[in-house]
Design a protein around this nucleic acid. Sequence first.
DNA 1: GATGAATGAGGATTCATTCAT
DNA 2: AATGAATGAATCCTCATTCAT
Lengths: 242, 242, 242, 242
Amino acid sequence: MGKAATQEKTRTRRHANRLPAEKRISDIMIAARQVFTERGYDDALISEIAERAGVVEGSIYRFFTNKRDLLVKVVESWYEEMLEEDRAQFAAVRGTWKQIRFVVLQHLYSIRREPGLSRLVFQKLRSEPSYRETRVFQLNQSYTHRIVDIVRAAVAAGEFRSDVSPGLVRDLIFGGVEHRTWAFLRNEGDFDPVTLADDLTNMVCRALFLPGEAASDHFDAAAKRLEKVAERLERLAEGAGS
Amino acid sequence: MGKAATQEKTRTRRHANRLPAEKRISDIMIAARQVFTERGYDDALISEIAERAGVVEGSIYRFFTNKRDLLVKVVESWYEEMLEEDRAQFAAVRGTWKQIRFVVLQHLYSIRREPGLSRLVFQKLRSEPSYRETRVFQLNQSYTHRIVDIVRAAVAAGEFRSDVSPGLVRDLIFGGVEHRTWAFLRNEGDFDPVTLADDLTNMVCRALFLPGEAASDHFDAAAKRLEKVAERLERLAEGAGS
Amino acid sequence: MGKAATQEKTRTRRHANRLPAEKRISDIMIAARQVFTERGYDDALISEIAERAGVVEGSIYRFFTNKRDLLVKVVESWYEEMLEEDRAQFAAVRGTWKQIRFVVLQHLYSIRREPGLSRLVFQKLRSEPSYRETRVFQLNQSYTHRIVDIVRAAVAAGEFRSDVSPGLVRDLIFGGVEHRTWAFLRNEGDFDPVTLADDLTNMVCRALFLPGEAASDHFDAAAKRLEKVAERLERLAEGAGS
Amino acid sequence: MGKAATQEKTRTRRHANRLPAEKRISDIMIAARQVFTERGYDDALISEIAERAGVVEGSIYRFFTNKRDLLVKVVESWYEEMLEEDRAQFAAVRGTWKQIRFVVLQHLYSIRREPGLSRLVFQKLRSEPSYRETRVFQLNQSYTHRIVDIVRAAVAAGEFRSDVSPGLVRDLIFGGVEHRTWAFLRNEGDFDPVTLADDLTNMVCRALFLPGEAASDHFDAAAKRLEKVAERLERLAEGAGS
DNA sequence: GATGAATGAGGATTCATTCAT
DNA sequence: AATGAATGAATCCTCATTCAT
């Protein structure tokens, strides 16, 4: 009520161009991504998003339920983008260590490229009770599930110990990355994705590789002694045969 | 709601009893802790905190700069409480594995006891640019630095590999715990602190223990068997050669 | 809500079938009547009316000036419907009391059948300054004028007192009915049209019937007897005095 | 959320005088009554009410839950005012007819004095589903119940017929008045409260008075005829005595 | 020192209506 | 004629913070 009263009044109108819905949605999402990134959720104004998108405020509500929905959609598309980007490259990566490192590194790159969005996900979306019903949750699952898959495959291949929960590995990795990058997300300085990815991957692998597989020193030593024994036996055998 | 109701309510706190400032502050902080925990930061009302503390809004501002400062003070006291509580027990814990497990477990207990405050720290305080200037930051440093200390000691004692950054270990642990507990913090079900602490500690230790020292028992066994084989072969070789 | 949903929905009404204008108008009015009835004026959405009518919003504006005009047209057609329905039956009703009762009862039935529309008329249309220029006003006049006609006829026939304003009778009846039915219109329970119509009609008629016709018969009788006594006494006196 | 963010920013302040709550409430209600009367509910702006009351918008919400509550409170106070005003005078009115006329007349005066508020009650408050839970409903009950009381007393005194529902009488009266005054409420011209009150009261009384008891015209006529008879008898008696 | 009334900025959201296609 | 995307004005309410009493 009341709204209706005013709405029935005549009003001026400056008509705009009629674009395909997709273009509009994309314009709005690009603008929203910018504004959310620059200002954070609370300080992002719908009016500014509209302005940057070259759209009137009301138009945003034709495509998005509300501000929060707009954020969610922006983040979703970011996740899809990330998942899509990596997919092809990831398929080409061979070896457990390299695969883990790849995932970690890509994740670090994403955070470094989009600190604003990362912060929003960590801070705003993930903490809401409805998060689990979100598509962002599912996308994030897909995103982080790669680690679970890699770990499972490594276990199946006998590379990794079988007594570790792949989910725990995933949480250690993504949680560790997050903790490590908070300072950066607070604008307290940069970090080196490559070094961090290497360190983190090493750490995790060290915890998971089965003994025989990994290069442990005194396994080496024993092996070397065996080799020497074998050599001596060979020499003996040669001598006996002369 | 019910603004009008207040006028009909008889004012309870007409002439305030003049209590010592410390008692006031403590009352306010207890009330604030409750309200922040129950409602989260944004939905916590200064008026409700004042009411529960038996003071008026204005009094809160005699002791706290603003709402945010009040939150910070509440969290600081929580951290001090936690640090104090653990200190004695921790001093009694012997052994690297046990110490790490102790810290992890206490942290998990804290989260489980105060999910509301935990969420506020993770979500609100830590993400603000001024976090690093906060005493909460320092307290948190103390809190998490225990891990760094343990790792350093273990390295010095030759238990842990020396090529790992203790800071990274700390981030893996606290980040991992955080990631693992988000579902709980969103009220999506409980978790078992003991099991989680064990698993996490195992994982981390596995990554850090030097070969001969610990874990990888069956690697050891295998190595010993290999050595025995080698010895036998050597004996054979010696016998054959005499 | 669900603005975003629309984009995912397949458009149903892509290429509109070109129906005769009358069919269009009728479809729209049927849909509008439903929606206005269900939601009331302010909460009725043009978009929902359009959807139910199987047209797009714009088409509604080809036939109706604006939302309000649509309401007015809907109510007009309802009135015409009511007037038409009753006309034949009414013509067959004989007797002042029965005619009044008929009008009241039909009115009560209408309210009971269409509480939503009734409320809109009482609440929205009638209170607007332009009401008197409305055709709804005229139709309502026709509708209520029946009472005026009945009263006038009854006065002319010597049944009703001539010193009462037929308009006042009309207002008492329709106002009384309205007051009596507000609770029902607020969904606070049903009413019995027949009883109410009887009671109301009785009340009104009691106020209007000329004395001789109705009550005070025995007062008359008494007076007549006294007159006769007086006459006899006069005759006696004359006889005695002569 | 979000609100809080802005609220924590510093802001300028132009401090106002500290008035007793009652004065404030009264100022606000006076202003609100004006604005609601002038503009109707939907077009009344809280900001204008605040301005006229010499108060900031927020202050209104210290005393009133929301705009609707403010309207309700304004109307309540109007009803209380009316009830209070009449009470003393009413107590002095003797006679059924005069009492009914008094109530009707006061009601008409009220409508004439406050057409804006009357319209709001008729149009807005009374049609809402929650009306029955309102104090306005109760006050209105008190207001209209006078008629019920008068009718009951008249029935008990043997003046009025006992077969009529006092509630129906009440609805006829107030409904009739309302119907009669709609044109005025739409600004379509004035009405004469006295004449209307007389006519309405007469009508109602005519419907209710028991035959022999009171002021019906042909009771008058009969009375006159009786008087003539009496005169004739007196003359006879005089003649007989000469 | 305590009180608590007063401040006042600030923005998401709705939906009837238009008019380019 | 039909479509339906785009328009955009317009307002209620909250609550941390202040400062006169």
